[in-house]
Amino acid sequence: MGAVEDRALSAFVRRLRLHSDLNEEEQKAVLALPGLARGVARNREIVRPGNVTTKSYLVADGLLVRFDRLQDGRKANTALHIAGDVCDLHSVVSPMAGSGVAAITDAVVVDLPHNALKEIAVTFPAIALAFWRDTAADAAALKAWAVRLGRMNATARIAHLFCEMGYRMEEAQLGSRHSYDLPVNQEQLADTVGLTPVHTNRVLKALRKAGIADLRARHVHVLDLDLLMSVGEFEPPVTLATLREARSR
Rank of each mutant, 00 (worst) to 15 (best):
V193P: 00
V231I: 14
R133S: 01
L63M: 07
M229K: 07
K143I: 00
E164H: 05
A146D: 06
H81C: 13
M165H: 04
K118G: 02
N115C: 09
V92N: 15
R14L: 06
V65T: 10
D6E: 15
N153F: 12
L70W: 08
E45I: 09
D181I: 15
S99Q: 04
R7P: 07
K28Q: 13
N153R: 15
L31F: 02
I120H: 10
D106L: 13
R244P: 12
A116D: 14
A141I: 00
V222L: 08
A139R: 01
A11Q: 02
D181P: 11
A172I: 04
E5Y: 13
D111S: 15
L243T: 08
G194A: 00
L63S: 05
L195D: 00
V222C: 07
A217E: 10
H221W: 11
L204E: 11
D72T: 09
A103E: 10
D21Q: 03
K143T: 01
E170C: 04
D134N: 10
S230V: 02
F162R: 06
L243F: 05
Y167K: 02
N115D: 13
D88K: 10
L89I: 11
A190K: 10
Y167E: 09
D214S: 14
A102G: 09
R44S: 14
P95G: 08
L227G: 08
M96T: 15
V198G: 09
V110W: 09
R244H: 14
M96W: 14
A141F: 01
T78A: 05
V203N: 14
R48P: 04
T123G: 05
V52D: 04
D111Y: 14
G35P: 08
D226L: 08
R69H: 08
M169C: 10
R38E: 13
G35I: 06
K205P: 03
A97Q: 09
A140C: 02
G98P: 04
